[in-house]
């Protein structure tokens, strides 16, 4: 009986381990204590040359120099929530002045070059004061749990990311309660309109959605780029002609390829739309697609996280 059980468990683990190969298992590798490094090197040395080569190719994913365009990330509120938008935006600026904004940014190296708020540009007189918020109010932060490094499940299982930490800091500053509302990105509008969250704050692109929300402050820029394997013959956007390009559904990269970069998208052999970038990245590793259209921060996070 025990043997049978063990066999079943082992068989069950096959699909799990395959699915895990792409993301989580390599993440755990990065957190290994330094002491185990010697043994793992020894194992690597014993690897076949083909595997080493594959590993080398995998470690050298990079973005094309040409990008698809720049976009701004801002906080989206329900249409008409002008006052709330203003208060939160003010608090964000206050956090820029007291240095919290940059401090959080330092924790996320992929993101810090894109943070666009500068203390010099802010007029301190118009900002809400610390602790001036209604302490009985709980601010409900709506975000996608799968959008690193802005908002994501961290290695220890807790919710984190730049947006999450900044939003928590805003609530602390104003004296509000903070409630995290992770949602399905496809359902974000329904969540917001139904009132289950007060804002969409999750690497949320403003371009193309200007009229759909009441917008808070733009706190970060991002560039949409094309991610290719190191040994790829694709060097420019023009080289993408006749290639298969992957993109995640309902992202700015996807929107851009449907809109401002539609002419480029039309040269692709196929634009493969994925539910998550994780699967797209696995497909890129497996050679089933040639490139991924993705914003630079999420893209760099994807490759550093997977390569480490």
């Amino acid at each position: 009986m025990k043997k049978k059980l063990a066999l079943i468990m082992a068989l069950l683990l096959i699909p799990v381990s395959i699915a895990g190969c792409g993301s989580s298992s390599s993440t755990t590798a990065s957190t290994e204590p330094a002491g185990t490094a010697d043994t793992s090197t020894a194992v690597e040395a014993a690897d076949t040359s083909a595997e080493v080569e594959a590993a080398k190719a995998a470690s050298s994913y990079h973005f094309l120099e040409e990008d698809l365009g720049v976009e701004s990330y801002a906080i989206g509120f329900r249409k008409g929530d002008e006052e709330l938008a203003e208060t939160v935006s003010g608090a964000v600026q206050a956090l820029v002045l007291d240095g919290t904004y940059d401090e959080i940014g330092k924790k996320y190296p992929d993101i810090k070059d894109y943070l666009c708020l500068k203390a010099d540009d802010i007029d301190p007189s118009t900002l809400p004061e610390k602790g001036s918020g209604d302490s009985s109010f709980t601010f409900k932060h709506g975000f996608d749990l799968d959008y690193p490094p802005y908002s994501f499940l961290q290695d220890d299982g807790s919710v984190g990311g730049f947006d999450v930490e900044l939003c928590q800091a805003v609530c602390d500053y104003l004296g509000w309660g903070y409630e995290s509302v992770p949602f399905n990105w496809d359902a974000k509008d329904m969540e917001l309109n139904a009132g289950s969250c007060d804002c969409i704050w999750s690497g949320f692109t403003k371009e193309g959605r200007e009229d759909d929300y009441t917008w808070g402050i733009t706190y970060s820029n991002n560039t949409q780029g094309i991610l290719v394997p190191g040994d790829s013959d694709i060097k420019t956007l023009a080289d993408l002609s006749g290639k298969i390009v992957g993109v995640q559904t309902a992202t700015s990269a996807y929107d851009m390829l449907q809109d401002s970069q539609k002419d480029l998208a039309d040269t692709f052999a196929e634009l493969k739309v994925y539910e998550t970038y994780t699967i797209a990245y696995n497909d890129l590793k497996a050679g089933a697609i040639d490139a991924i259209a993705i914003d630079m921060t999420a893209g760099s996070f994807l490759i550093t996280d997977n390569n480490s």
Partner: peptide, 25 residues
């Protein structure tokens, strides 16, 4: 006993991760 979604991933990526096969197309 396992989610169909997981099985789909296994059928698709399995040949690549287990045997290094080309899964294009």
């Amino acid at each position: 006993g396992t989610p169909l979604m997981l099985q789909l991933l296994m059928w698709y990526f399995g040949p690549y991760y287990l045997f290094g096969m080309n899964i294009r197309g």
